[in-house]
Structure formats: structure tokens, C-alpha cells
């Protein structure tokens, strides 16, 4: 692991063992993020993105979740070896997560402002109540909410406003790693741009690493340096944003780009990837994208392809691309 690596995930395998069967949620995922770098994680609903995030944060629900293998290094230390108590400390200080669901992340019976103040004080106990409160109001305004709404309860806020509060809280403790799970899905684009700008500058200032889970390629293009595309619990393509946007190679990545409605061209119907999501309790031995792929051949059923480096830093998991690469 390089000196500049903030977080490294190695061979992560996570299953959920349920009555209905074993959900193979994350299947041998590895990646690393440098300090000051933002990596985008995109992929279909149910592909395992949140599960990866929860694994890093030590927040997997056991049971039903079970981590079969995996090492997760933050700042050189393997988080999978930490006790619950140690992890709790790490979550407050070194790593923080913005959750996908703003409704569950705030305490409904505590005033919004008090919830932010609490985190600020946790981070800097030397502050007086008044100072911490003043800082909390600043944070509210920074995410575009009028400070006079400090005294209100979460149910009085719209979904997007709650999400902004959560982002303010995550930033308040100035962590080394931020995991943001669809942080701006509930926000309008102007506030989203502001929040992204705010996260970008803070991240730059503090050299924070960020894992950004999103469905929006526009956001990836805007703030990520790297991007990984995940399908059925596996990274099927990863590289710099230049690799992914200018030279997408995996048929799934191409299919995703083809599904986005255009802002200037008119079409009657959109073109989603054909077929339905694979059943994570019943993954095939071969390429899991096989039944939905426009390029599949009989050969694809012969083995499970490996993630292959097709150009420096650009990895693709598809035998057709591998053949292309081998043939030069």
C-alpha cells in the first residue's frame, strides 16, 4: 500500500444469509482511494454498493450479513480487526458516512440544530455551548438552510433539507474518509452543485478521500477522479474518469451510458439495458451479465472472466475485451 493511500479494500466478500437463500451481495471487490481523491461507485440498484460502504464503516448488520473475506485498510490499519468500540471511535473521527436514506439518519425527537451542535462538540470538546451553536448555525447556512430553522424538528424539513443537515453533520467532524451514499439524490441541482462544491473544497483543504456512491454520471464527471462500475457484487470496470467516460469498454457500462435521457436530443422512448436484474441468490458460474449482454457468445458461458488491465489503470471484466487486448 502506497504512502498516499487513504483506504484500501482487498478481496471483500459479503453475503446476507436469509431464510430465502444466500444473497451474494459483494463478490471479491478490491479497490483503493488515495488521499485527496474522489472515487465514484456506480452500478445498478442492488449491486452491493451500500453493502461495501457499510463494510468499511463496520456497520454491516450481523446477522444476516457475513463477511467471508476482506481486508480494509484505513490509514494503514486493518479495520476488520478492530473491536466494536474501536470502530465506534473511528466512525466519529476518521471516517464518516452520509447515508442514502435521510429519513432514518436523523433522530426525530431532537431539534435539528441540536443534532449538529452535538457532533461539533464531540469533535471539539473545548468549544462552549454558544460557540458550538454558532458553528452549527453556520453549517446550516452553508448547506443553504436559513439559520432561524435551527429549533425545528426533522419532520418539519423536506427530504432534501434533511439530507443537507446530514451532510453538514458528516462534514462537521472533518474526517479522513467520507463515504457518501447517494448524498445528493434528494437535492435540486443548484443545491447539489453547492453541496458538491462545498465537499470538493473541504476535501481538497483537508486532503480527505471520498467514496461517492451515485447513479448520476453527471456528478461522477464533475467531481470524481476515478470510477468503478459494479454489477451483481463485482467490479466489472474501473479506471480514471477519462477511461470510463471516453472509452467505456464493458457492455454494462456502455448500456448505462445508453440509458441516460439526453438534454438536447428528443427520443420517443429510452433504451434501457434489456432483461432483468440477476437474482443475487442464484448467480451463474460464468459472467453474471451474460443474459443481458448484447455481445454475449457461447464462449462467455465457459468461465468467469477476470478483471484485466486493458490499458494502464483501466480494468475490465469481459472476455471479449480480454481477447481484444491480447490480440493487441
Amino acid at each position: 500500500m502506497g504512502n498516499n493511500t487513504a483506504v484500501e479494500v482487498k478481496n471483500l466478500i459479503v453475503h446476507y444469509e436469509t431464510e430465502e437463500g444466500i444473497v451474494e451481495a459483494v463478490n471479491n471487490v478490491s479497490f483503493s482511494i488515495e488521499k485527496g481523491e474522489v472515487m465514484g461507485l456506480v452500478g445498478e440498484t442492488g449491486a452491493g454498493k451500500t453493502t461495501i460502504a457499510l463494510s468499511i464503516m463496520g456497520l454491516l448488520p450481523h446477522p444476516p450479513a457475513k463477511m467471508y473475506s476482506g481486508e480494509i485498510y484505513l490509514d494503514g490499519e486493518d479495520l476488520t480487526k478492530k473491536s466494536l468500540k474501536e470502530m465506534q471511535k473511528i466512525r466519529g473521527k476518521k471516517a464518516s458516512m452520509v447515508f442514502q436514506d435521510p429519513m432514518t439518519a436523523l433522530n426525530p425527537v431532537i431539534k435539528v440544530g441540536d443534532q449538529i451542535t452535538e457532533v461539533i462538540k464531540l469533535h471539539d470538546p473545548s468549544l462552549s455551548d454558544a460557540e458550538a451553536q454558532k458553528k452549527a448555525i453556520d453549517m446550516l447556512e452553508m448547506v443553504g438552510i436559513k439559520g432561524d430553522r435551527f429549533e425545528e424538528y426533522p419532520h418539519q424539513f423536506s427530504g432534501g433539507m434533511k439530507q443537507r443537515v446530514i451532510i453538514a453533520i458528516a462534514l462537521a467532524c472533518q474526517p479522513e474518509l467520507i463515504i457518501a451514499d447517494e448524498p445528493t439524490t434528494a437535492l435540486d441541482v443548484t443545491i447539489q452543485a453547492q453541496v458538491m462544491e462545498m465537499m470538493k473544497s473541504l476535501q481538497h483543504e483537508l486532503n480527505t478521500a471520498m467514496l461517492l456512491i451515485t447513479h448520476d454520471f453527471g456528478i461522477v464527471a464533475n467531481i470524481c477522479q476515478k470510477c468503478a462500475v459494479i454489477y451483481a457484487g463485482e467490479i466489472v470496470e474501473s479506471g480514471t474518469v477519462a477511461h470510463i467516460f471516453d472509452n467505456p469498454m464493458h457492455p454494462y457500462t456502455k448500456g448505462l451510458f445508453g440509458s441516460i435521457p439526453s438534454l438536447d436530443k428528443d427520443v420517443e422512448r429510452l433504451t434501457p439495458i434489456k432483461g432483468q436484474v440477476v437474482d443475487p441468490t442464484d448467480l451463474p458460474e460464468y459472467c453474471s451479465f451474460y443474459n443481458r449482454c448484447d455481445y454475449c457468445t457461447e464462449k462467455c458461458k465457459e468461465c468467469d472472466p477476470k478483471l484485466v488491465e486493458v490499458e494502464p489503470g483501466h480494468f475490465v471484466k469481459c472476455i471479449h475485451v480480454m481477447q481484444g487486448a491480447e490480440e493487441g
Binding site: 436559513k146 447539489q192 438534454l263
Partner: peptide
């Protein structure tokens, strides 16, 4: 106009310039 300027475009070669929205927020109360 500000809203449209802030749409994130899925293209890494387009540099986006969202129209900044500064100033006090009006309270809905």
C-alpha cells in the same frame, strides 16, 4: 436559469459553470 446552469452533464470535457446563488435565503415563514 440558475437551475439549468447547474445540471451535471455526464461528459468530462464540458466544464460546468453553475450560476452561483449567493445572498440571504428568504424564510418560508
Amino acid at each position: 436559469k440558475a437551475l439549468l446552469s447547474a445540471i451535471p452533464i455526464p461528459n468530462i470535457h464540458i466544464e460546468q459553470k453553475p450560476i452561483p446563488m449567493t445572498g440571504e435565503l428568504t424564510s418560508p415563514i
